[in-house]
Write a protein that binds this DNA or RNA. Structure first.
Length: 492
RNA sequence: GGGCCGCUAGCUCAAUUGGCAGAGCAACUGACUCUUAAUCAGUAGGUCAAAGGUUCGAUUCCUUUGCGGCCCA
């Protein structure tokens, strides 16, 4: 009698029948004595000690129903796992049993009460004496065996992806363990977690294009932060010695397997430390996170064993490019000369607006893919590092490093530039770059310079991309696999 | 920005040298009181991503658009 209707219509008819019996298909609460996994443990313990099988109340989503005439097996799933149910007409009565068969579907949430037993095949099972509908589901779930494979649907309707795939659920649990471990490590090191503005009147702290928005009441342009760096350093000026923030940054650039327009970053600043201290902090933090999130400092990434046990390799950028590209960029001190040499060697890199950016491009294209084991690439050209302090013995370079693991850049750190007059000059240099066509140049920030004029002690700073770190730890090559709701174009 | 590939039932996938659109799971009807991808018999379910073009006829060929994936710059 229901044939010819689509599945949503069929379920709505079932919903009406349920309501007609005076049953609320969306009750406000559920009774639950055990989770699914707790119930199984309780039975195992009772069995081992010779006690009576416990009676339990468990609730969850129906994932499978196997009707065999006057008895039915089913599985429900809650956050802890699955447990089998056994319903018999003789236990429930014909009317109640038929209601289950007719109006309850896979996907519905139900609560059951009954005693536990072990089936002939050995599975701990609830022999159901009472059941209650907790939530009627109107739309069918993805297919039970193949699951949900369409990538677009997986991202747009992540809840279906999570229902269908334990592997996906585990990726996001790992992500949470990573963030929790990161906090634990920093807290234990005496860092103070703070919150700084997402809406900023001048963006800064990174070389990127911002998202722009508008404050109506104040009639002013605001930017979504591309970084929280300059605010965290103001806190160092204010006397905090160790601060960190884990927050979303927003960068108005292309979407790729490595870039989402909003992404999560941890930044921390440590007064009286320098970039060498930040290397120590980084390798110990990542090793701690790996231990906490994965249970080991060694793990597989794309078929290769990665070992994040400290100490990590330290390699100067100049040496790395010399060894892998064959170019000592200091021999080609202008954009034109370096670009000519790059072309002469037929290196596979794209043209850049500045000398430093071209070096960065060489790093990204030629060095980065080779760095599978964790590596600090250090000592960067000064013109791509406007917030970092120059090396005392090499004014062309700054005390800066980036973190590379699994062929992916996942962090950035430096000895912070704290000379306000030099900082102003660096911003002015950036302004020249902007005029020359670099739309990622760092803007002048007088308010930040004013803060530095009040004195920031020598400070080390570090930023780590939480999404990238999660990719590494969960063996994923697309950032969209580690962001619950990645950015997508509108479906319309 | 460019190239290639994809979009067919709720889900996973077929098919068509241009001629009534197919299966498994899910659903519906029936049988079945220890099953677990339950089984068995039957039924229904489609704007073939969208719009335009070519054609007697388009899901198929062409064009444009949308969304997605991969690669490149």
């Amino acid at each position: 009698m229901l044939e010819g209707f689509d599945q949503v219509q069929q379920r709505r008819l079932k919903l009406e029948r349920i309501r007609e019996r005076g049953v609320d298909p969306y009750p406000a609460r559920a009774r639950r004595s055990h989770t699914a996994s707790e119930a199984i443990v309780a039975f195992d313990e009772a069995e081992a000690s010779g006690n009576d099988a416990p009676t339990v109340q468990v609730s969850g989503r129906l994932r499978a129903i196997r009707v065999m005439g006057k008895s039915t097996f089913a599985h429900i799933e809650d956050g802890s796992g699955r447990i089998q149910l056994y319903l018999k007409r003789d236990d429930l009565g014909e009317e109640v049993y038929d209601v289950f068969k007719r109006d309850i579907d896979v996907g519905d949430f139900i609560g059951v009460e009954g005693y536990l037993f072990r089936t002939r095949t050995g599975e701990v099972t609830v022999r159901v004496e009472l059941f209650e509908l907790l939530t009627k589901t109107l739309h069918p779930l993805p297919e039970k065996w193949h699951g949900l494979k369409d990538i677009e649907t997986r991202y747009r309707r992540r809840y279906l992806d999570l229902i269908a795939s334990e592997d996906v659920r585990e990726i996001f649990r790992t992500r949470t363990r990573i963030v929790t471990a990161m906090r634990t490590f920093l807290d234990d090191q005496g860092f103070v977690e703070v919150e700084t503005p997402t809406l900023q009147s001048i963006y800064g702290g990174a070389m990127a294009r911002p998202f722009t928005t508008h404050h109506n009441a104040l009639d002013m342009t605001l930017f979504l932060r591309i970084s929280d760096e300059l605010y965290l350093k103001r806190l160092i000026v204010g006397g905090f010695e160790k601060v960190y923030e884990i927050c979303k940054d927003f960068r108005n650039e292309g979407v790729s397997t490595k870039h989402n327009p909003e992404f999560t970053q941890m930044e921390c600043y440590w007064a009286y430390a320098d970039y060498s201290d930040m290397m120590w902090l980084t390798e110990n933090m990542v090793a701690f996170i790996a231990e906490q999130a994965l249970g080991s400092t060694q793990f597989m990434f794309q078929g290769q064993m990665v070992d994040v046990t400290p100490p990590w390799r330290r390699w100067s950028l100049r040496d790395a490019i010399l060894e892998l590209a064959g170019i000592d960029y200091m021999d080609f001190p202008t954009l034109e000369a370096l670009w000519a040499e790059v072309q002469r060697r037929e290196l596979h890199v794209s043209p850049q607006p500045t000398w430093g950016k071209l070096i960065e491009e060489l790093l990204g294209e030629i060095v980065e893919p080779t760095l599978i084991q964790p590596t600090f690439v250090k000592d960067y050209p000064i013109d791509i590092s406007p917030l970092a302090k120059a090396s005392s013995d090499d004014p062309q370079h700054v005390e800066r490093f980036e973190i590379f693991v699994g062929g992916l850049e996942s962090g950035n750190a430096y000895s912070e530039l704290n000379d306000p007059l030099v900082q102003r000059e660096r911003f002015e240099q950036q302004g020249l770059g902007a005029k020359a066509g670099d739309d990622e140049a760092h803007p002048m920030d007088e308010d930040y310079i004013l803060a530095l004029m009040h004195g920031m002690p020598p400070t080390g700073g570090l930023g780590i991309g939480v999404d990238r770190l999660t990719m590494l730890f969960t063996d994923q090559t697309s950032i969209r696999e580690v962001i619950l709701f990645p950015h997508m174009r509108s479906e319309d």
